[in-house]
Every structure is written in C-alpha cells, then in structure tokens.
Design a protein around this nucleic acid. Sequence first.
RNA 1: GGCGACGUGGCCCAGUGGUAAGGCAGGGGCCUGCAAAGCCCUUAUCCCCGGUUCGAGUCCGGGCGUCGCCUCCA
Length: 470
Amino acid sequence: MRLYNSLTRKKEELVPLREGEVSIYACGVTVYDDCHVGHARGAVFFDVLRRFLEHRGLKVTYVRNFTDVDDKIIRRANEEGVSWREIADRYIEAHERDMGALGVRPATIEPKATDHVDEIVELVRDLEGRGLAYAAGGDVFYRVRRFADYGQLSGKRVDELESGARIEVNDVKEDPLDFALWKGSKPGEPAWESPWGPGRPGWHIECSAMSMKILGREFDIHGGGRDLLFPHHENEIAQSCGAGAGFAHCWVHNGFVNIDNEKMSKSLGNFFTIREILDRFPAEVVRLFLLSTHYRSPIDFSDRALTEARAAVDRVYTFLKQAEQGAAEGWREAPAALVAAVDGLEVDFDTAMDDDVNTAAALAAIFERVRLFNRVLTEGDGAAGRAAAAAMAAEVRRLGAVLGLFQDDPEGWFHAGVDLDEQEIEAKIAARLAAREAKDWARADAIRDELAGAGIVLEDGGGKTTWRRG
RNA sequence: GGCGACGUGGCCCAGUGGUAAGGCAGGGGCCUGCAAAGCCCUUAUCCCCGGUUCGAGUCCGGGCGUCGCCUCCA
C-alpha cells in the first residue's frame, strides 16, 4: 500500500523492514483530562490503519503510549490536592473507557513513560556522551544546532526558528532552540534518580526511548496528530537519529477536527469530549463521520455532520436487515453483474485503502453496492438475486470490520436508545394491525402517530410491521 | 514575518491529465389504505485569471479567500 510520508512529503510504497510484519508507533495522549473528538480522530485513524494492514495479512505490532508524567498532570494534581499518579491513573482509565466505547481496539502494547525511566536515562546519557546533550542546573538539554538534520521533518530552518522569538526563554540553556531531555524536580514533584540528580523525563524523550525499546532502533511507521509534527516529532528524530538509530521510515500525521472551521483544542476551549458525543450518538456514527473525510484533511465537526453520518449508517443497516433475511446459498447463479459486484467490493475497497487509507472512497464502494442490491431486493430478482444480496451483506460486514463499522445486529441497531418498553411497542403494533385488518385507518394511524411522538417509526413491509427509533 | 495545506452541485465529501464516485437534504414518480423504508428520474461553466498540453478539477505561475504549524496541544 501507499502511505503519505510527512518526511518526504509524498506518497510512498510501504515496504516493511521485516517481510509480513509492520511496526507502528503512534503518540498517545498526556493523561491529565478527558479525551475530546480530536483525540478520537487520531485513535480511530490508527485503529483503522492497523486493522487494514491486518486485513492484508500482515502481522502488526502497534504501540500507543501514555504520557503519564508531565507539567499539566502535576498542575492538575496540585489543583485537586491529589497525587500526580492519581490523576494519571484516572485519565488512563477514562481513555480506555472512551476509546473502548468508540470501538478502538487496544494497541498491541501500551507503554507508560514512567515504566521506562531507565531507558530514558540511558538514552540521555548516550546523547550526552555524543556531545548532543548537556546538563545545566539540574536539567539536561538537547543541543539542537549540533544535529545537522534538525528541521528535516517540519521543513523548518534553525535560523528561522530563532527569529520567531516564540521560544521559551531560559537562562541556563546554551541556545534558545535547545529543548529539555530531563527536568530536575522541585520538592514535591515526581522524581527519579539520575546522574544529574532527581528529576523526570522531558516530553519528547519518552517516545524516542519507548519506541526504540519496544520496536527496535529502526521501525516502519511513526505517527500522531499533525500538531505533533513540530516540535515533538522533529525532536524525536533529533534524539533517536542523534543516538545513531535509523528510527522511523514513514511518518504519518492525521489532520485536525475543526469546529466552525477552527481547530478543536483544549486551549481554545471549543472541544467536545468523546463521552459527551457518545451520549448523543452511537459509536459507529462517530466513526463513520471521522472516516468520511480523508485522514489528512481537516474535518468540521457539527451536529449536522453527525446527523448525516447517522443517516448513512442507518442506510447500511437497513440494507443488512433486508439482505440478511435470505441465505447466500447459490448466489453465484445470480446474473453476472451481481456476482461481479459482490466479488468487486473487496477489490474496490482495498484499492481505495491501499491509496493512502482513502476511507471515504472505501465507504463509497460499499454504498454503491448498497444501492445496487437494494434495487435487487425491491425488484425481487428471484432467489439467486436474493442470495447474491445476502452474499453482498456478508462482504459488507467483513470489510466493514476493517473500518470498525456495520458489526451490529440490525434490530439492535435500530432499537437502541429507545425509552419505551419493547413489549409495549409490540402491543401497540398488534393493536394497529387489528385496526388495519378492520380497515379502521383512523385508529391505525392514531397508533402510529402516538408511537411517532415517542420517537418510534413503524415500517410495514413483507407482511410484517417492524419498528425503529426515529 | 517564515513554512505549509485547502477552495468540487443546496450541504458534506472522493477524485493518481482523457469530458466529475459516494452520503445528506430538496423536487417529481413507482410502491403503500396512507405513510416509512426502498427504487427510478432530477440539479456541477470543479474560487478567479493566465500558461503548458491534442486534452486540466487534476501540472505550472499569479490573484482572492479560508485554515494550520512556528508556544502545551491528537
């Protein structure tokens, strides 16, 4: 497959280091608060990338870390008067709950920075020995100008960075561009012993240390949100390649979630947490929404967009509900065009996904088939046609799984989130059926209207009446 | 100021030089007791101006507009 490599700024064929295996490191979250929809986008994207590679028969080792020691965690702990560990644990748990609810599979390995302090110290010592790091006042900094390739990933030039004058002022640094590898601890702050005195890791070093520890000094894919590209990933490259590692071959960055055309972010305060959204929309709706735009483009978050995504997911489940009523036996006897449509879905799907994870095009391939086989089902194309529709449904489910979509039971999907008691609904449907048989249309419609008022939509068809949430 | 991305029908969104996928919404029709769902039909000078090419939404240049990174941020 081809993936856009931020390092070379073009799509490149993914050629794994070890045949048949792919190693991925994606930067996770700093656990100091609940995750919002922006975090969900990154998590869902890498989840889908991983599932697709597995679908293609590759063995994927997917690492996603937790940054569990950091200034923001400490600040939050101080505000609440609890330990930093308590804050970190609380939000790791919240992250697992929210991502799990979104259908994001746990990564193969989910390391925490604080479990890898030894490796971090070791890496900093290595850099110090190479003259790329220096201790100053209990801290250790990276000597940015010593690393010739600095700026390669972000396309920034060291001289231009300095003129920006937006760099942290710090008297002990040799150069304003230098960044912290190790931070000396003040009393009461989390601290680990080190050659430079008690302290804790800087932000960027943990990802270098953990990725190389777990995946090796050279691995296939490293990624995260676009905003991590600079300085975080640039600094990781400086740290790892500075220490002589080959490091990541392909850098993959997902775009932002916007609100009213503006980046959703903590600092702007214009965010919705995953939990808030899942309160109002099913996980699959959120996933389809996130996957309906290419991962590198910005995506605008709105109620309207979510509502449209819900209608789209409903459309697929409506098809599955109809198509799965029959068996797929003998479907190859169906007209050639239908057989080709079934066989062609995986081809179209894979072609789209092979091209830099084009989930929007992959979804389009599914929707094309939904329309085609809805026609087959309404026009009653005989037993073979119905069998082909059932076969198509099975393919939609199999490939939907790669996106983490369309795995629910249609009835469960359409009945979820309804307040009324199901037996009560069935009783009203039976009463309406009696009225219809007596041709008492006024009474039949009154019952339907009553249910509609409770958000229940009735559908007559195939001699039966079914219901779903509106 | 430096670097970069984007601008496709009413809305969202795909499109790897050869006359535009898909979703949502609207209108008309079929089906239905009426509906709902489904199906059929229906709407695009691809931001503007130049250029390259037999041919450009797709490549190049300029303009306008929007956004992002350069500071913690998925």
